[in-house]
């Protein structure tokens, strides 16, 4: 698996939007002075008249997006996760969430893998924030194939969607010819009976690597990819709880309020089994290369392996 093609999911976002522009006449893409980084710049180059830069004003951008969408435009509003979910939280909640307007939020540079910019830009809270908004769909794709599919699905979906993309180039492990994306459906990537690793986003591939190594050591771990964190696929989680009796969750996000919390909520209500959460452990990040930070915060296959072993 080592020599796989790597693409950052923000790149997939930009490319998918550029493709979408060909098909959707009513598409409008908004950004807040980060087109070069969120990769909406790819779209802007192809469809300059359908791209509106709102300047460094994320709260206003969410209101503009809401207004545009009420008239039937398909709107994608983009910024870093910190500013899309963080700065503009209340505008997203009251102008998009409450009226259930189908604005699609493309939030890039999520999580600790932002790297050198440090704590002010490393958003480990966005999934938690967005989960609390009634009717918000949250998608955190794991690779290029899934990210593009998610953008196409979101464009057709009749409701607000928060999409989370990463800065770091990550291995493309899904097969574009066979991959099927369905909002709200978890993906069983590897069957197993000893324990289940439930992962999302950047951590899915790390979980696959961990499971491969665990298999060599005689531990048969199931791996599930939860790309849609809300609404979450309860069935796949309950089935795993029943069949494997133990769950480890992995996310590049705070352990508070994200995937781990969502899984634990499902499990405690329907089939209580131990759930061990791997994520950012109620701490702020700091500057450094993304790869080193991921290691430091235990967001890597090595830590998943160790956690699984001590859980068994």
């Amino acid at each position: 698996m080592a020599d796989m093609v790597k693409i950052a999911t923000r790149e997939s976002y930009g490319n998918a939007l550029a493709e979408l522009g060909e098909k959707l006449d009513n598409l409008v893409v908004l950004d807040a002075d980060l087109a070069a980084a969120t990769k909406t710049g790819i779209f802007k180059k192809k469809f300059p008249e359908k791209f509106i830069d709102c300047g460094i004003a994320e709260g206003n951008m969410m209101g503009i997006a809401a207004g545009l969408a009420t008239t039937g435009k398909t709107v994608f509003a983009s910024s870093f996760a910190m500013f899309a979910a963080g700065r503009a939280f209340e505008q997203v909640r009251n102008s998009i969430g409450y009226p259930h307007i189908p604005v699609k939020i493309g939030a890039t540079h999520a999580g600790i893998s932002v790297g050198e910019d440090g704590a002010t830009h490393q958003c480990n809270e966005d999934i938690a924030l967005m989960r609390t908004i009634p009717g918000m769909t949250i998608i955190n794709p794991a690779d290029d194939v899934e990210a593009k599919a998610a953008v196409f699905a979101a464009a057709e979906f009749n409701g607000p969607v928060y999409m989370r993309f990463g800065r770091l180039a990550t291995p493309v492990f899904n097969n574009p010819d066979t991959y099927k994306f369905e909002i709200g459906k978890g993906v069983l990537l590897k069957d197993g009976t000893d324990i289940t690793i439930i992962a999302t986003g950047l951590m899915v591939y790390e979980s696959l690597l961990a499971a491969e190594e665990l298999a060599k050591q005689g531990i048969n771990a199931r791996v599930i990819n939860i790309h849609t964190i809300k609404p979450i696929d309860k069935d796949i989680i309950i089935k795993a709880a029943k069949e494997t009796k133990k769950i480890v969750t992995v996310e590049e996000h705070s352990i508070i309020g994200g995937l781990g919390s969502a899984v634990a909520e499902v499990v405690t209500e329907s089939c209580p089994v131990p759930v061990i959460r791997i994520g950012v452990n109620d701490k702020f990040g700091h500057s450094g290369p993304a790869k080193d930070l991921l290691k430091e915060f235990g967001l890597c296959s090595e830590n998943i392996i160790n956690t699984v072993k001590s859980a068994l």
Partner: peptide
Amino acid sequence: LRHIGAMLQGHPDMKGTPGVDMSTGSLG
């Protein structure tokens, strides 16, 4: 600057850097 464990963070951190009066980085 910006290295792992460095005093000088990517954006000013008043907790760790002498002379920095306020942590900033989110514009406005």
